[in-house]
Structures are given as C-alpha cells and as structure tokens.
Nucleic acid binder design. Structure first.
Lengths: 366, 366
DNA sequence: CTGAAAGCGCTAACAT
DNA sequence: ATGTTAGCGCTTTCAG
C-alpha cells in the first residue's frame, strides 16, 4: 500500500491538512486537543512526512553534500564519521561524493549536488589551484565550507588543521631529543596539506641545521614512495626522517628494516595524521594527531551558522585547529625496550590555542 | 539571482515547458531544430533541472541510501568508494548513514532515509539478529540489498563474500605448508562475518587436528584483542594463528614480537580482508583478499535490476563472491629473507566460481 | 486557533 | 511534434 499522506492524516483526525502540517512542523500554535488527535492519527497510519515534497515547498532539503578527494585515504573516514553524526544530530542527511582525486570529477560532483538542491556543501578540495573555480562558483550559490585543505584564500569559510604548528611540534621534539641531520619525505601534490607541511619543514628546520631545508624529497602520499625515498636520502646520513604523512613514514620504516637500520637508535622517523597504521607499525610511529572530532564539530557549527542567517553578508571565516604531537617508539630518545609495552605513547599539546569561538576573518577577496 | 526554471527556458526558447522538459529528459520525440533552440537557451541561462521537483513529480529521487555499521572499519571505505562510483555512473547519488555499530541508530537511520524517499537502500547490517526487523520492514517498502553481511535468510537480496571458502583457502594453505597445531583468534560479534568465519574454521580445522576446533578465542575485531588473545593461546603451543580479520592478526604479530617469537618460523599468522595494514605490517600478512570491486559491482547490478522491474515479485537473490588468498611473509614456509622484497606476495584464487550471472534463489521466506 | 487556497518546479496524460 | 493542464505532497499566506 502507498504511504499515508498529510491528507490521509487530516481526514482521519477530522481537520484540515494545514493543521496537520502545523502539528508536524511544530512551530505554530495548535490546540492541545487537536494536536493530540492529529498525532494519534499519524501514529496509527504510520505517517512519515515526505521530505521531498517538504523540500520543494520550503526550499530546503535538509541535506548537505560532502565532496572529498578519496574516501580510501585513511585519514578521511573518521572525518566523515564525525561529520555525519554532527549533521544527523541536526536532522540533516549527508550526500557523499568521491572524486577519485580528479578535479574534473570534483567539478561534476559539485554540480550534481547543486542540482539536488543541497542546503550546503562541504568540500575537501583535490587541488589547491585546480579546484578553485568550481568551488568558488558553488560558494556563490550556497553556504560552502572548505575542510582540511584550502584552495585559495577567501573562497569560502574554511576549517583545517594547523599544519605549520604540527610540523613545528615535530621539529621541536626532534631537536630536543638531539637529532640534527633532518630530511623531509613529502608529497609533490598541489593540495594544501602537502604544500603547507613542506613549507613548515623548510621554515623550521633551518634553525637546526642550515642544510636541512635542502634535504627534501617529494613524491606522493604512499608507502611505496616512502620506501623509495629512503634510498634517495640515505647517502646524506640523516638522523631523522620527517615524513609528510603516516603512509610515507611506514614505507620508510619498512625500507629501513630491510637495510638493517635500527629505528630509533640510528634514525628517528615521524609521520603525520595519527591514522590506525601509526599504532600497528613496528616500531610504533611518532606522529601528529589530527583533531578530527574538533574539525568536524567546527565545520558543523560554521555550517549551521551560515544556514541560520542565510543572507547576512558575513565575512569569510577561517578556523585553524592546533594538533597534538604523539610520541611513540619511532623517535624515542634512548634505546627502545623490545619487551616493553608496544603502545607506550606520550601526547604533547600544541601551544596555547584560541578557543574555537575565536574566528579570524580572512582578508577581503581581491 | 535565483536559479533559472523550466519556465524561464521555455520563454527564452519560445516554446512550452513540456517541450523543454522533453528535451531535458530526452526520452520523447522532439524536433531537431526545437531541441537545439531549447538547449541553447538552457545553456545561456545556466539552467540546471531541479531534482527535488523532478523527484516529487516522477516519484523517483535518483538517490540510494547506504547504511553501514562504522565507516572507520578499514574494510568499508573501499566498498563505499566502489559503490559511489557505480551509482554515479547511473546518475544516482549516495546518501551515507553511519550507525556507530548500534542497531537502534541503524533503525533510525533507515527510517530517516525512507522519509527522504530514497529509491533503494543498501544495508550492511550491524547485527545478524537485531538488525533484522528494521531491515525487513524497509525491504517491504523499496528495493533493498544486504551487503557484505547477512541478517537472516530471505529478508532481501544479498551480496557478500564467501567467508567459508576464504577460510578454507587459509586452512589449505597452512596444511600444505606443514602447520598442524592451529588456533583461531576471532570475534564474539553477532554479525555474520564473525559467525561464518568462526564456523568455517571449526568445520575445516578438524580434518587437520581433532583438537583444533576447540582452540578458539573470541573477542572483537581489534588489534588490542589480537594482542591479548595471543597470551591466552600461547600455552597451547600452536604453530599457526588463524585470525578473523587483519586487525586481530596485526595485534597478534605485535604481541608475538614482544615475546620474542619468530614469525613465520615458530608460528604462522593469517588475517582476513587484505586491508592496507596487511602490507605495512611486519612481517607482511598472509590474508584473504575481499573482492571489493566485484561486491560493489554486483550490488549495483542487482539494485538496477530491481529498480528497472519494480513490481515483478522476483525471488530473492543471493550472490556469494569467492575471495583470493594472498600469501605473504607471515606464513611463508621457509625462513623469510629479511633483505628480500618486503612486498613479495602470491595470489591464490578460490575454486572455480560461478559467473556473477549465476544467481541462487534463496528458499522462500517462512 | 483553524481552514481554504495558492503554489514550489517539474512530468505525464491528454489534446491537438 | 508540440501545447495545455492537472497534479506530486507539502508549507504558508490570508481570512475567518
């Protein structure tokens, strides 16, 4: 049998459809007794408001689109999870689009979501430059938030981790534990995570060793590249390998093991992201823990803010969350005790951080 | 400015809205010259069909809901990716719902998606028993496919990996490489993956060693449990640890390393799923590779089939895909060469499998 | 506080 | 091949 409609409920409750609608939405005065009768009838008929009809009439689908580069990047699932929960808590649903790391696919997905009348869009851009046009065009049409990576300034609201501070935490830690000959194993990608992490390394490592900023190898965010990169930097006799993410670091650890190099005794290795593999690798990986829940919460908060006061020409907002350093065996100062607890770790917070409410308005566009 | 509507395009092209609609949908005869004019006008106005209005009228949203237990389970993201691509290829969009491994949340998410008028639902059930009611109720309303796990027979179409064959491949491999004292480190979960893998172990291991089916430890699908389980089975002096998934296996490897046990010389360890961590663990993990792309493709195919012939009371269909065994260092027969290539692996296919088109109708319900 | 009525943007009969 | 028209199910004025 077909689903019950508002009319069916109205008929059963002996009132008009308008009254039923008012009861269901609940934001308008309705007589207590009438409301009771309506709710009873709705319950009895198993009535469920048709969100599509509601959306057409009220011009709001209660739907948010999430466009991301690659769901299989091990860092994204937890972000998706937190975002999904935050949105559902507000009665919204999440339309997911995976771009396969391709800016053209990304543009197509964004358009498809616009056609579906999403109320807002969260985009994790594929490419700092090549994502910009499509993202900016969409941002002109609806509330849009750029998450985790950026794609040019002032395109839209933005929430991301503070990559510079994260890298600085790594460099401080390595300096304090006596490392002096650093190398950076990074990614050549044009996304902002790759760019910012490299820039932060180059800026911070110079203080430790004038040669360090020059010891940079760029490939991609994969374990294969991490292994290959070790062979390229090893002749420089580094005592620390600073990797742009956990995958690269784990690949490096594998190659070092094959070469018979002891970690952390001969060389320290650090990652970035604190994905699952950081705890299961051997040795466990010192890395930067992304404030995933915080990122999602901030994103949801900013989104709701925009959705609430739709027309107000608020300035763009930028939120940067400071990550923590998690020290594990791969960078321990002394000799690791192989019989000790494998999961030993120490969390070191970033510098005093602004409360989430402190928002930095971005410079005006153009 | 507001989006252009059909009417705007009709006005600009000098024809009726019906004609424009026909051009946009493209399934009805329209004069070539008229069509050209319409398309030009649409292009000029930046017209994008409003999918919500279209959905309300045509009673089809072009949207599929995916309900899964936990997106952070490392096996799911690749499944989500494949499914998203398959659906988008058919012009559909994916509404994602994460249940936090909770059957009540699962029921709520399913209802929310029904209210949003999804055309179909793909569910990866949280619990073999406790998911059944909500899933069955939804299946009565629209095309529904149960993916990767089951939740009772004949509830809906189903696509999953053949866990029994996967486990048999593992046991054969261990038998052929001379292992005789097997243990199973599994999960006590009520989902079908946990249940089937354990059952297959107990059924197959008896042939190797009458005591083996008794050596079963059940916890959850985590590395922590894998490590803890090692301590419980080690006194039995096993020469192979058969784990119910990769996480458990990696946890076991960690603990064995702490105990100074050499893998694979003293004991072999196997996983299940072939997630990323199987290749980055030390030693690399022998495991069962899930046919992820195949699962997603079959799911999409069955879904389209149901959507095409909506009312036909077709019998329930069940598809089981046979996985492959991937042999890596954790179960190598001889001594692993530490300087050898870390990624050495050998893929062993399952037994002759039926072509995907061979569908087994499930027994009639009740 | 409640009802009547007008659409939201589109598709699908039914005309022509 | 094209136009006219009646809604899809709901929310929201506008009257009462």
């Amino acid at each position: 049998m077909a689903d019950a409609t508002l009319r069916d409920v109205a008929q059963a409750a002996g009132c008009s459809v308008a009254t039923v609608s008012r009861v269901m939405v609940g934001n308008r005065p309705v007589g207590a007794e009438t409301a009771r009768r309506v709710r009873a009838a709705a319950e009895r008929l198993g009535y469920r408001p048709n969100q599509v009809a509601r959306a057409l009439r009220s011009r709001s689908t209660g739907t948010v689109g999430l466009v991301l580069p690659q769901i299989i990047n091990p860092f994204f699932p937890s972000l998706v999870r937190e975002l999904e929960h935050a949105l559902h808590a507000n009665g919204r649903a999440l339309l997911l689009a995976d771009c396969d790391d391709n800016p053209d696919t990304e543009a197509a997905r964004i358009n498809a979501l616009l056609a579906r009348q999403v109320d807002a869009l969260v985009v994790i851009p594929v490419d700092e430059q090549r994502s910009r046009a499509a993202v900016a065009a969409a941002a002109a049409q609806l509330p849009l938030l750029v998450l985790d990576r950026s794609c040019g300034h002032s395109v839209a609201d933005s929430v991301a981790v503070d990559n510079a501070t994260g890298m600085a935490l790594v460099l401080d830690h390595l300096a304090q534990t006596g490392r002096r000959r650093l190398c950076f194993l990074g990614a050549a990608g044009a996304d902002s995570a790759a760019v910012e992490r490299r820039a932060a390394y180059e800026a911070g490592a110079a203080a430790l060793d004038p040669q360090a900023p020059g010891r940079v190898e760029l490939g991609d965010f994969s374990a294969e590249w991490g292994a290959a990169a070790v062979d390229r930097v090893w002749p420089a006799q580094p005592d620390a390998l600073v990797c742009a993410n956990d995958l690269i670091a784990v690949g490096a650890l594998q190659r070092l093991r094959q070469l018979g190099v002891r970690v952390p005794d001969e060389v320290a290795v650090t990652g970035f992201d604190d994905t699952d593999i950081a705890t299961v690798s051997e040795p466990a990986l010192t890395t930067i823990r992304q404030p995933v829940a915080g990122l999602a919460a901030e994103a949801a908060r900013l989104l709701e803010l925009r959705l609430a006061q739709k027309d107000a020409p608020e300035p763009r907002r930028t939120v940067r969350l400071v990550p923590d350093l998690v020290v594990r065996a791969s960078s321990a100062a002394g000799t690791a005790d192989p019989a000790g607890p494998a999961r030993a770790e120490r969390v070191i917070g970033g510098p005093d951080r602004p409360a989430p409410a402190d928002l930095l308005p971005a410079p005006p566009s153009l």
